[in-house]
Design a protein around this nucleic acid. Structure first.
Lengths: 194, 194
DNA sequence: GTCTATATAATGATAGAC
DNA sequence: GTCTATCATTATATAGAC
């Protein structure tokens, strides 16, 4: 699959700089802060260059989302290739920055068809990779579960990690320590070895 | 508690109309669409009236969030007063519109201190009410669990319902049917009677 | 409380020189 | 590819008449 690896292979320097600036802006100040002038200022470039590299602001945002979903797939593939894939998956999913960006993009995509489609496709692919990993881990550990429960379980893990990050960034941590302990206890049972 | 009941008691008609318009706009087109002119246009009023009723757009947004959190508390109180509080809570939490608005406001609050504080306070209060309800239900059903697990369990329920709604609005439904069945089976065990 | 009129800044985008 | 210059549009917000 040539589109998952080498995400920024042939990206001109300034184009990449603009996307990086847009990503930082979105993360720090929200998607509404991603404007022509502010993106350019952050990249240390002239605003007109934004229109040279991108057809429109909508296109820049879509390209940004595409880059992020592709990067997410690359990272997840690396995560799942580790000795304890579920443990590493849990750590990655509860990583604040990566998930915070996802949430902002989801709010953005809520009202832009093309972006929503890209996010949905990205989410489906990630979920499939995750379910496969959980399924293998269950088999390996001897706790062979049926497909139905595996599916549901992955959904629970994905949901809890996401909301943990959302609430943490909000300043709400009620129940977090307890649910973390619960999940980590479960993961330890699945991946017990060193 | 005078602040939880009668949320819009002494609200002038046009002020309420503006808040309603802002809420619909935020829901349908995102927080970036909540501008002076568009809010006014949707309410069928002149843009200048926005500034008459609200000190600034930031203040309008904050007032909107306050009204929504207060309304959420009222609704939750009613939900939890029903014969099957957990079942009704689950139904309410997986209701698309109410949760979609919460998500949009969370994205908005991510970058505005006052709004984030209001959302955090609102979320903490809701969670406390929910944990209490779950705790009571566990006791009533005889499945008396320790505080630690009750806390974690409520966090799981809240997380799954929220992500179910987020993903559904995105068009992703992988694992939804299965996790719903899992949760509903559990809730049935807790609240078995008619 | 609602109106007309207006100030001021930021927005996305384009034309054309180099 | 990058620049200067500029456009039309929209944004928040205010002053003052009624």
């Amino acid at each position: 699959m040539t589109d998952t690896a080498q995400v920024n292979a042939d990206d001109p320097v300034n184009r990449k700089a603009l996307l990086d600036a847009a990503e930082r802006l979105m993360l720090e100040e929200g998607y509404a802060a991603v404007t022509t002038r502010r993106v350019a200022a952050r990249a240390g470039l002239k605003p007109q260059l934004v229109h040279y590299y991108f057809e429109s602001m909508d296109q820049l945002l879509l390209d940004l989302v595409r880059r992020a979903t592709a990067h997410g797939r690359d990272t997840l593939a690396r995560v799942l290739a580790s000795p304890k894939p579920l443990r590493r998956l849990w750590e990655w999913s509860t990583d604040t920055e990566a998930t915070a960006l996802q949430i902002e993009m989801m709010a953005l995509g809520n009202h832009r068809k093309a972006i929503r489609a890209e996010l949905a496709d990205g989410a489906r692919r990630l979920r499939r990779m995750q379910v496969d990993a959980l399924s293998e881990a269950l088999e390996r550990s001897g706790i062979v579960d049926d497909v139905t429960r595996t599916d549901a379980l992955m959904m629970v893990l994905a949901s809890v990690s996401r909301v943990l990050v959302m609430e943490k960034s909000l300043g709400v941590t009620a129940g977090h320590r307890n649910v973390r302990a619960l999940v980590e206890h479960y993961l330890d049972r699945l991946e017990s070895g060193s």
